[in-house]
Simulated assay, not measured.
Amino acid sequence: MDLEWLKEFGLGLLWVFAQPLLYIAIAFTFWTGYYRVKNDRKMFGHRVFPIGAEWHGTMWLGIMFGVILSTSLILSGSLLNYQWLLLISTIVFVFALSNQIWLLSPIYTIGLALIGVWLFGKFSAEPNAWFSPLLEVDLVLISFLLTSLVIAEVILIRLTKRNKTFPEMKKGDRGKYIGGHHVKRLMMVPFFVPVPNGVLELSMFNWWPMFSISDTFGLMLFPFIIGYSQRFGGSFSEIGAKRTSNALAILALVLVGGSVAVYFYPEWTIALGIIAIAGRALIHGVTHYLDLEKRSIFTPKQDGIIVVGIIPGSPADEMGIHIGEKIEKIHDIEVTNEHEFYEVMSDHRTFCKLAVRDFNGEIRFVQRALYEGEYHELGLIFVKETPRFTLKTEEIS
């Protein structure tokens, strides 16, 4: 028995290389990363974060949820078939083609699949060799799977950090540049899916299987992709993301209750899917609207320069400067825009001393020796603004 389980886990791990989602994730990483870096070079003249930064810090979180979800599916006898896995993979692939990470929320990917299969079962006149197996899986199971992955999305959003979001620049209504941050996070939740017609069984549990389409099962590792994307300018990115996660947590509680209701009233499945998708879209839209209503944090100031972004590993990063702080002086000379900043730096190429006003309104001084060429590569990103004057004057001959 132990050897059979060990063999099935090994075969299940190998199945991941046959999953379309694995290759979709790899291709999507390079695609979305390429366009982000391209926009960075256009806005700032250089790359800020490397390709693949959207996945930063999510690997162990995804594995943890994968272990919990795998255990829950196996012990409850929640079997899925290949048609369901292929349907979910197809929806993710179509959404990935749009390069819109926010569409990779499990509410959209699994929710649409749930609604589509319910409608097919309700209105299909003739059985279909490919679609009919989709109806063999209890939609109550799909609703619980949806709810579980939404909880994973809530925690993914909750763990957003300001220094790991992507700075952006755009022109405001008055023609001046304003800054903002784009939160883009991707996480893979690899979990073992029990599939029918294997050699394993859990006969020691009286309740097993709860959602049966077979008395025996095999295992297949399924790399589910979760994505979150939202722009913030009126509030710091991690604060906006926490508000989003709070709202999504409330929706997740509603879905938990809805999943229990669907267990007793399967005909409510369509309502659960609609509530999930409408609720997620409402959260995204209201968050965007409320942020637009606020005055942007990253706008030109008369008494200093707001730091919009910091390149990881740069001198500015090593000096402990934080996004959203304001640089008021460099070498005791007041500066109000990027042009003035680098004019002063061009006269002090071996040393940097900055007066920085922190979030408590207090001034602190940071300094660092600079190596050759570092004076114009400090790693600071400011709001671009045409200088009102220049600190240098030309000599009249």
Rank of each mutant, 00 (worst) to 15 (best):
F341G: 00
P266H: 11
S235L: 13
W84H: 14
L3I: 08
F365H: 03
L134W: 05
F49Q: 08
F131A: 15
V308W: 03
D358W: 01
V150L: 15
M220I: 09
K184N: 07
Q100F: 10
G227D: 02
F30R: 13
E395P: 00
T58I: 03
E372P: 02
I274V: 15
V260M: 13
P300T: 04
W268L: 15
F95W: 08
Y228P: 03
M1P: 12
I63Q: 08
L272A: 07
I330D: 01
T32K: 12
S296P: 06
F224D: 06
F232S: 11
F65G: 09
G111F: 00
V344L: 00
Y289L: 08
W118Y: 15
V286T: 11
V94S: 04
H181C: 05
G111I: 03
G179V: 07
L21F: 05
A252M: 04
I277T: 00
L378R: 04
R47W: 02
R174Y: 05
F166S: 05
P20A: 08
G198H: 08
V16D: 02
K242W: 12
L292F: 09
D358E: 05
S70V: 06
A369R: 13
S72T: 14
I330F: 03
A27Q: 10
F9Q: 00
I110S: 01
V262A: 06
F166I: 11
L219R: 02
F191A: 10
T390G: 06
I24S: 07
G62P: 02
F191M: 11
H284V: 03
M319W: 04
P209K: 08
F298G: 00
V48M: 01
D2E: 12
G320K: 06
W208S: 09
R388D: 14
K384L: 05
P190E: 11
F9S: 01
G373C: 10
M345N: 03
E168A: 13
V137M: 04
L69F: 14
H288N: 13
I63F: 14
I270P: 00
N99H: 07
E325T: 03
T58Y: 05
T393M: 05
E8C: 02
E385R: 13
Y371F: 06
T29C: 11
D40L: 06
E374S: 11
P266S: 09
T147K: 08
F192D: 02
I51K: 11
A25E: 09
L255C: 12
M220L: 15
S245R: 03
A18I: 07
L251H: 12
L80W: 12
P50W: 09
L80A: 10
T386N: 10
A281K: 01
E340N: 02
T350M: 07
R388S: 06
V195Y: 02
F211N: 00
V307R: 01
L134C: 10
T147A: 14
T269R: 10
E325A: 01
K294Q: 15
W55A: 14
V366L: 03
Y35T: 13
S212R: 12
F205P: 04
E54S: 09
L114K: 06
F28N: 09
K7P: 01
L86V: 14
G279E: 00
W118E: 13
S397H: 12
L186H: 04
T269Y: 10
G66I: 07
K164L: 14
I333D: 00
E201K: 13
P133I: 08
L255I: 11
E4A: 15
V366H: 06
W5N: 11
I213C: 03
Y34I: 07
T165N: 07
